[in-house]
Amino acid sequence: MEHPNGYSTEVKLFVISVLTENKSGLLNAITIIFTRRKINIESINVSESEVAGVSRYTIVVKITRERAEKLVKQVRKLIEVLGAFLYEEEETHFQELALYKVPLEPFLNDSNNRIEKLIRDNFARILVIEREYIIIEKTGRKSETQKLFEELKAYGVSEFVRSGRISISKSKRRTETFLKELEELSANSLVKE
């Protein structure tokens, strides 16, 4: 399907990667851009990047390309945003982390080592063993962490948490190079001609 303006009307997952100065309140400033347009954020992760003082936001949204492009332009408008990049899922490498709290008791009576096998088959690992429970950790795509969740349900999952997606683009650009180019650009566009 194509809109008369040339954009596809297909709704799909986009990853918006944002580099910002580390300033309090910026998370709010970024997310209200989405709220105002009634765009639900599928997942969001904020962390310090490889450059000191620079934060990286990874935001996943499910919208059309046209909306995604316009959204990214609005994010770029924020004063402390250094750069915002739009990727389709395939243009990034990404992972999520999930933690599962399961009672200890089924393990103790697990004569066939079924849970151990489940953990091994899912490439998960045991993070902590406590008197009452164990915590299992798994990294992977959402479908994978979800699969393990479904399989562990039989043993009673008392808590389950999944992180936002973190992703790295397939492009070869280095953040430091980008920042350097940005400095030159802003230095060259300070004054009105």
């Binding site: 910002t20 100065e21 004063i79 402390e80 945003v81 250094l82 920042l179 940005l182 400095e183 650009l185 802003s186 230095a187 060259n188 566009s189 300070l190 004054v191 009105k192 001609e193």
Partner: peptide, 11 residues
């Protein structure tokens, strides 16, 4: 006179 994340007058 300058904010690195802000380029007010694009060339």
């Amino acid at each position: 006179e300058k904010i690195r994340s802000y380029a007010p007058y694009p060339k």
